[in-house]
């Protein structure tokens, strides 16, 4: 499970409440059928990986990983065995005698994860564990982390503001906004069918394009006008709704196409694999991802045709998706 949200939306606070590092102003916390919100962190069966790793500087890597096990008074032969096993899992078996000052950021991250795994907790909590790593290392650790967590079969709650990280790691994404979870679903579902306007505009970069659609006429239910073109939409009784489409679900067509609306090109950004074109559609910015061979000129007028089954509709007033 990944908690995803912009900074300040309360995702870290939620994680810390689950961990017992912060007390909630209301509500209950249950882990595995057991109510735990009255218990201190050490009795909740959790292990946490912190954003700044929190590797103890005065202990060796071995003792760091063994720390929690020693606290629970496990036989030292078993500790030895478990530390070695988790260290191997995280590929840090050669670093066991080092201190954290002698480790790189990525290695510290591995130690922190190994320390959590060695506890064999019911739940592992991770608070933006990759955000302090540089971009390339983050990519590498992300894939590795995913493998390790899948193999360990431990429930993991992972907090991040990086939606690519969320998409790649999550079985389920919970999108948080202003202290509330607004959508909790599989990554593809969150991507394809955002529950609210916010989710659509937050997930993926560039985000979804939104434009106001007007009711075609009172007699024709479910017909909506976008830039003078008619689309089949929801049958609700409001004068306008939001029409939404992902940048990659727009195709450039000829002026004669029925559902291709006009857009004036403002900026063209060739990004290697594809080209990002920012257009002006009736005063609204539209971002379009096209093949890298397409190079429109700034000021040129393009005709954009949305892929019909990828169009989503949102209520203008409530911001909620209309099914």
């Amino acid at each position: 499970m990944v908690l995803l949200g912009a900074s300040g939306c309360g995702k870290t606070t939620l994680l810390r409440i689950i961990a017992g590092l912060e007390s909630p102003s209301g509500g209950e916390v249950w882990i595995g059928g057991k109510r735990v919100d009255h218990l201190p962190p050490r009795e909740r069966g959790i292990a946490m990986v912190f954003q700044n790793y929190a590797v103890f500087p005065h202990l060796t890597v071995f003792e760091n990983i063994a720390f929690g096990l020693r606290m629970s008074k496990i036989d030292s032969a078993i500790i030895d065995e478990r530390v070695k096993r988790t260290a191997e899992l995280m590929h840090i078996e050669s670093l066991l005698d080092r201190y954290s000052g002698q480790l790189s950021g990525g290695q510290r991250q591995r130690v922190a994860v190994a320390r959590a795994l060695a506890m064999e907790p019911d739940v592992i909590l991770m608070d933006e564990p990759l955000s302090n790593l540089d971009a390339l290392l983050r990519l590498e650790m992300r894939a590795e982390l995913k493998g390790v967590l899948e193999n360990s079969n431990t429930t993991t709650i992972y907090v991040t503001h990086d939606q690519v990280e969320a998409m790649s790691l999550a079985d389920r994404i919970s999108v948080m906004h202003k202290g509330e979870i607004i959508q909790s679903a599989e990554p593809v579902e969150v991507y394809r069918n955002p529950a609210t306007h916010f989710v659509g505009s937050f997930i993926d970069n560039p985000p979804m394009n939104f434009i106001t659609a007007h009711r075609k006429s009172d007699s024709e239910e479910g017909k909506w006008l976008v830039m003078g073109k008619t689309f089949d939409g929801p049958t609700i009784n409001t004068p306008e709704v939001k029409f939404a489409i992902r940048p990659e679900d727009l195709a450039i067509v000829s002026a004669s196409d029925e559902t291709g609306f006009a857009a004036t090109v403002r900026v063209v950004e060739p990004l290697g694999a594809h080209t990002l074109v920012t257009c002006n559609v009736d005063g609204t910015l539209f971002r379009v991802i096209v093949d890298s061979s397409v190079r429109p000129e700034s000021g040129e007028v393009l005709y954009l045709k949305p892929v019909a089954d990828r169009i989503r509709w949102f209520d203008s007033a409530t911001q909620l998706a209309i099914a």
Partner: peptide, 23 residues
């Protein structure tokens, strides 16, 4: 001393006093 070090100790089975003496 980052508070996270203490918090990490708490989640790893220490009470407040143990976290202080051990970390």
């Amino acid at each position: 001393i980052p508070i996270e070090l203490e918090e990490a100790a708490w989640t790893l089975g220490c009470n407040r006093v143990q976290a202080f003496t051990k970390v």
